[in-house]
């Protein structure tokens, strides 16, 4: 067996394991081994991960370590050190992002955001939007109307994101904001699924060319 296929098979298995079982199924050095896959092609990164943890104490300190210190570890070259620094910097920004973005958008604000998003999206496409986090998932109504398996990852995401309230919007920007029977049915189905996992449907909007209609509140407004 070639070295390349040996390591690439192992790496694929590790990624699948991460995908299936999540981060908490990994010991710290295994997590670092996985991260190192992206900075070090082809080599076995398990021993390198152990050396890094031994030197710096924990994963967080590895990701904060200067490049110069990282390259002193056997197996970490200049490009691997740059990758670890890049990844560490991005994680650092993520922590700032989640601590700063604790805001709730007003109705005017989220309608404006949704309209902007819909301007590049095809007619009748829908989104589930969380005003607390600016988190959104786009989908086709059929997924819920036909109760396909694709609703499961959508609901998983909403629960994982700890969304407490959701706005659903349907793109009808090329026409008027008039609901039809499908829209009503979609609202009922989504509302039931959200309610089952303790998430509130805050609003169900039809976004038209010049106005929007709130199906949940039975009111129209100009945008």
């Amino acid at each position: 067996m070639s070295g390349k296929s040996c390591h690439s098979g192992h790496r694929e298995r590790v990624r699948r394991r991460y995908h299936e079982f999540g981060i908490y199924s990994f010991h710290e050095h295994e997590l670092l081994e996985l991260i190192l896959f992206y900075g070090i092609p082809l080599k076995n990164t398990n021993e390198i991960a152990h050396r890094l943890i031994e030197k710096f104490g924990c994963l967080d300190e590895v990701l904060k370590a200067p490049e110069k210190e990282l390259t002193k570890i056997k197996g970490i070259g200049a490009s691997a050190a740059v990758f670890l620094k890049t990844f560490g910097d991005i994680c650092g920004e993520y922590k700032e992002f989640i601590s700063v973005n604790q805001y709730a958008l007003s109705a005017d604000e989220y309608v404006a955001l949704i309209r902007e998003y819909f301007s590049d999206t095809e007619e009748n496409k829908c989104i589930l939007f969380c005003p607390d986090t600016n988190f959104r998932i786009s989908f086709s109504a059929d997924i819920f109307l036909e109760n396909t398996k694709d609703t499961i990852p959508i609901m998983n995401n909403l629960v994982k994101k700890e969304s407490s309230r959701i706005v659903v919007a349907v793109n009808k920007m090329n026409s008027t904001a008039s609901p039809n029977q499908n829209d009503i049915q979609l609202m009922d189905i989504i509302s039931e699924k959200l309610s089952a996992v303790g998430i509130r449907l805050q609003d169900f909007l039809i976004i038209g060319k010049r106005s929007a209609y709130s199906l949940l509140n039975d009111s129209a407004f100009v945008v």
């Binding site: 694929e12 995908h19 999540g22 994680c91 993520y94 998932i137 959508i154 998983n156």
Partner: peptide, 27 residues
């Protein structure tokens, strides 16, 4: 899975993106 499907990316790319949030929270 959702990320892979919606953005047409492979498992390797999706895992790397996901690692950002998970590693940040765990650390």
């Amino acid at each position: 899975s959702y990320l892979m499907k919606e953005c047409d990316i492979n498992l390797s790319s999706a895992v790397l993106i996901n690692l950002v949030s998970q590693v940040s929270r765990v650390t």
